[in-house]
Amino acid sequence: MRLAQHMAVASDRVRATAIEATEFPDLSRAYRVMAVPKIVINDRVQFEGALPESDFLAKVLEAASAVH
């Protein structure tokens, strides 16, 4: 969550939501959360585990540029 929330402050385009998985089982099921942390960007790019900042940014840019 740390990188996500700093990115949210850096850009008006970015929104970051921390979700406590066990308290929101429906959301966790919908996003197939099997391990944490699990990061889902624009409902289309997802990964598990912490990434270095440059790799996290690459995922954000991938999600932002994906065709709707």
């Binding site: 979700i19 954000v60 540029s65």
Partner: peptide, 13 residues
């Protein structure tokens, strides 16, 4: 960034 980015981070306590 040209479009909106929504980041969800699932975690447990």
């Amino acid at each position: 960034l040209a479009g909106d980015v929504d980041i969800k981070v699932f975690s447990t306590p």
